[in-house]
Amino acid sequence: MIRPDVIDLRNFYHSPLGQVVRRVISRKIRQMWPDLKNFRLLGLGYATPYLNIFRPEAERVISFMPLEQGVIQWPREGGSLVSLVDERTLPLPDASIDRIIWVHGLENSTDIDPILQELWRVLTSTGKLLVVVPGRRGLWARTENTPFGYGYPYNDKQLNRLLRDNGFTPGDRQGALYMPPGNWRLNLRLWRVWENVGAKWWRRFSGVRIMEAEKQVYALTALPERETRRRPVILPAARPVIVGRELPRIGEDL
């Protein structure tokens, strides 16, 4: 499966269209999670454009980027909070994270069940996962001029089934990106109009679907057992892409 690499993702979010996308989706995420005070937050995939709004209040904010995608420095100032990882073996202890935002990841993954089971493992008993994926009926999944045009798009029914099968209870869901995926100046200026009208009249045709899911504690015995419990993989210094200062190798204690 072809997926955008970290440079493509960075360049998109630096573009005028990408900046609007960040505002639109960040607004929806903030509505769903209005307060993460003293919570430990993990961003997975390419979630860094949506993590800064939580840094002033969260106890800790970190970002993991997958091997197939590559990694860039984040944040620009201060110590690095991002690492390159194997999504199936996260270098975190059990029940160590309160909230996870997964963006530009699920739709591009072929090993979905092991990743979701790993996210289940690192979440606390009251932990929640927020998944952002391209909407199956929206225009954004039909063009490759944005990162949402890659991978496998989802509708709510498919997301529900996938999350339930891996020990999560689906909860609140929102649509976003009703505007066309174009860089035209008028289109970008009218993004609030597009979002307001779309949320009222075209809910099923949103460009992305955002779904919250809560960890099912009682689902432990229902999840398929792994043949062996692998220790978290600490990656060597060789990395696909690094922009900015060199990142320190991640340790087990975050």
Rank of each mutant, 00 (worst) to 15 (best):
R3H: 02
I7T: 12
L17S: 05
R22A: 14
Q31N: 10
P34M: 08
P34A: 08
P34R: 05
L44M: 15
L44K: 01
G45A: 04
P49W: 02
N52T: 15
R60W: 00
S63V: 06
F64L: 08
P66A: 04
V71W: 01
V71I: 15
E77Y: 13
E87F: 04
I97C: 01
I101D: 02
W102Q: 03
T110S: 09
D111R: 12
L123M: 12
P134I: 13
R137Q: 12
L139M: 11
E144M: 12
P147C: 05
P147D: 05
F148C: 03
G149A: 08
G151Y: 09
Y154L: 03
N155K: 02
K157F: 13
Q158V: 01
L159F: 03
N160S: 14
N160M: 04
N166V: 01
G167T: 06
G175C: 05
N183F: 11
L186W: 13
L188C: 01
R192N: 00
A199L: 07
G207N: 04
V208C: 08
I210W: 03
M211K: 06
Y218M: 09
A219C: 13
P224I: 14
L235Q: 15
P236G: 09
R239M: 13
P240V: 10
P240M: 13
V241E: 07
G251S: 14
E252V: 12
